[in-house]
Computed example of a mutant assay.
Amino acid sequence: MYPYFNSSKMFFFFILIFSTLISISSNSWLGCWIGLEINLLSFIPLISNSSNLFSTEASLKYFLVQSIASINFLFSILINMMLMKNFELNFFIMIMMNSSMLMKMGSAPFHFWFPNIIEGLSWFNSFILMTWQKITPMIILSYYFNKNFIIMIIILNAIIGAIGGLNQTSLRKIMTFSSINNLSWMLSSIIISENLWIFYLFMYSFMISIMCFLFSMLNMFYINQLFINNMNSLIKINLLINFMSLGGLPPFLGFLPKWIIINFLIMNKMYLLTFILVMMSLIMLFFYIRITYSAIMFNYLKLKWFKIYVKNNSFILMNIFSFFSLTGMILSTFLYL
């Protein structure tokens, strides 16, 4: 899946995991900050590649953005320590800390770096950036957040994630805006409960891993490759199932965590927020359907001399994942029994 994953890259990958554990198990703000810095310095060697200028540019941009967010976080920690008894400034310190964490995870309106950086990454690195790299900022955010500010951010994420993906032809950028939209659901779940957030993150990571695995296996980066390349019809059906699951369409697995969050939001009388999240999910489903429609229906550009062959083991694994995606409605039915 990742051709440059040698022993040195493996070492930095383990450091990346270890740095997240440092941050989430720390009992001080400074310990959290140290974990974030180790995380940053271990992820850059993973994404940088001397033979690819795009990945080198992406690693430089990532370093600059994450450094700015870390400086803001450290600055807000220091102000908080010095002015702990000044309750008038607590709100501004809280907003600064929240904003720095939102910038680190690529949340709207601090998402400006996210689509540009992911365009220069491989599918494996894109998967790490869309899933694992969100864990530490999310947990730190859950310690100290302003609820009204986070609700405003949730609405922005839902709208920007849905609208931003409409005019894209790059599959990596579509996945990025999908990640921004899903971030609104994650933030909603972390307001409700950390256990619900863990469940949603696990389900989202499972779904996005299938998509990244598929696109990496087929070596696809743009929408037009889906109907120019001569693909097996079963691969196209797998794409359809997994895209619909990622969009949260009811018969599929992706609907289950979204349904639980909708139930909790309605119980807490957050009707407007629920309405916005559901409406934006429909827009997300629109451009997922556009991609799968292109893949399934446009067969006029079949190239006889170019055919994609998929290894049997990978194909079996892909079918198993798709079968799991179809079990969402069964799980949803028995959840409240």
Rank of each mutant, 00 (worst) to 15 (best):
N90T: 11
N90H: 15
F91H: 15
F91E: 14
M94S: 11
M94R: 13
M94T: 14
I95T: 01
M96S: 14
M96C: 15
M97L: 14
M97S: 11
N98K: 09
S99L: 02
K104Q: 10
M105D: 02
M105T: 05
M105E: 02
S107Q: 00
S107I: 01
P109T: 13
P109R: 11
F110A: 01
H111E: 00
F112E: 10
W113E: 04
W113G: 06
F114E: 06
P115R: 05
N116W: 07
E119C: 08
L121N: 10
I128C: 04
I128A: 00
L129E: 03
L129A: 04
M130V: 02
W132R: 04
W132I: 14
Q133F: 09
I135V: 13
T136Q: 11
I139C: 08
I140E: 00
I140L: 15
L141M: 07
L141H: 07
S142N: 09
S142R: 08
S142A: 14
F145Y: 15
N146L: 12
N146M: 06
N146A: 08
F149P: 03
I154K: 08
I155H: 01
I155Y: 06
I159Y: 00
I160Q: 01
I160A: 05
G165Q: 04
L166N: 10
N167A: 14
N167S: 15
N167Q: 14
N167M: 13
T169W: 12
S170Y: 09
S170L: 06
S170T: 09
S170N: 12
L171H: 02
R172M: 14
K173S: 09
I174W: 01
M175G: 02
M175V: 08
T176E: 03
F177M: 06
F177I: 09
S178F: 12
S179R: 09
I180Q: 01
I180G: 03
N181W: 08
L183I: 10
W185R: 06
W185N: 05
L187N: 03
S188L: 06
S188Q: 03
S189K: 02
I190T: 11
S193D: 15
N195Q: 13
L196I: 11
L196D: 04
F199C: 07
Y200C: 04
L201H: 07
Y204K: 07
S205G: 15
S205V: 10
S205A: 15
F206V: 08
M207E: 00
I208L: 12
S209H: 05
I210M: 04
M211V: 12
M211G: 04
C212T: 12
C212L: 13
L214I: 10
F215M: 15
L218F: 10
M220D: 05
M220R: 00
F221H: 15
I223W: 07
I223F: 13
